[in-house]
């Protein structure tokens, strides 16, 4: 065992992690799926959505930002924590206007896939029916704020990878919204369809135009296997 190796326990299973990893990264490497929404492997962690919350030595913490250390005891796949995750996903569904039946992200949407994985059969909370604006001003990319979950992936990708800082948030609480660095919409920014920001949206909010329903039903990302299966599959091979 190298000095960089630390031992942690997730759901009673002892695994070896590498110092510097977050709990989520260590779990991924061990083939143990921790549900997440705002996290993207190519971007720095945001810690926004709280879907990846686990209990670390009995206390809640977001696993995408919490670094591993020797002897951590982590609870992940428990009824209590999954119920909280399901409630977060449900709140995101009722806060936005997610018309899954006609959304082109259907079958590839991480929010939808998490709803299925966590057993959210139907919302139990009232829909807020908020008015959200569609930004179609860019010739190749659009923002459908009805579908925004405020994950901040596009904000981080535009800043860290694309170096354009085209996106940000404005307002607070229920009025918080994805904003663009322009007066008259996305069309005035330097964003292009090839940008990382345009590739990382977990829903259908920031979407490249004219792709539509190019992938047939049955071949979309989550048509055959639930979200997280690609991580759990790694363990099966080991």
């Amino acid at each position: 065992m190298s000095q960089d190796t630390v031992n942690i326990i997730i759901d009673g299973v002892e695994i070896q992690a590498t110092a510097g990893q977050t709990i989520l990264e260590a779990a991924d490497a061990a083939g143990m799926y921790i549900p997440r929404l705002c996290h993207h492997p190519d971007l720095p962690p945001g810690g926004h959505c709280r879907v990846c919350t686990v209990k670390v030595n009995g206390r809640p913490a977001s696993s995408c930002t919490f670094p591993v250390s020797e002897g951590l005891v982590i609870e992940n796949d428990t009824d209590e924590i999954n119920a909280q995750r399901r409630r977060i996903i449900e709140m995101l569904f009722v806060e936005g206007n997610h018309y899954c039946p006609s959304c082109e992200a259907g079958g590839n949407c991480e929010l939808q896939a998490l709803g299925y994985r966590l057993g959210m059969l139907a919302p139990t909370l009232p829909y807020l029916r908020v008015k959200r604006e569609l930004d179609a001003t860019h010739k190749d990319v659009y923002i459908d704020r009805d579908r925004c979950v405020l994950c901040g992936r596009c904000v981080r990708a535009s800043s860290v990878v694309d170096k354009k800082d085209a996106f940000g948030f404005e307002n607070r609480g229920i009025k918080k919204r994805l904003s663009v660095d322009a007066v008259h919409g996305l069309g005035e920014t330097a964003v292009s369809a090839a940008d990382k920001a345009a590739q990382v949206c977990p829903t259908g909010c920031l979407t490249v135009k004219r792709v539509g329903y190019a992938t047939p039903v049955g071949r979309r990302k989550y048509d055959k296997t639930p979200i997280g299966a690609e991580i759990e599959k790694k363990t099966a091979k080991v």
Binding site: S102, E104, L134, A136, Y142, K209, R210, Y213
Partner: peptide, 9 residues
């Protein structure tokens, strides 16, 4: 207001 490729769906 929706995009043309969405209409069939």
């Amino acid at each position: 207001g929706r995009f043309y490729w969405e209409a069939p769906t």
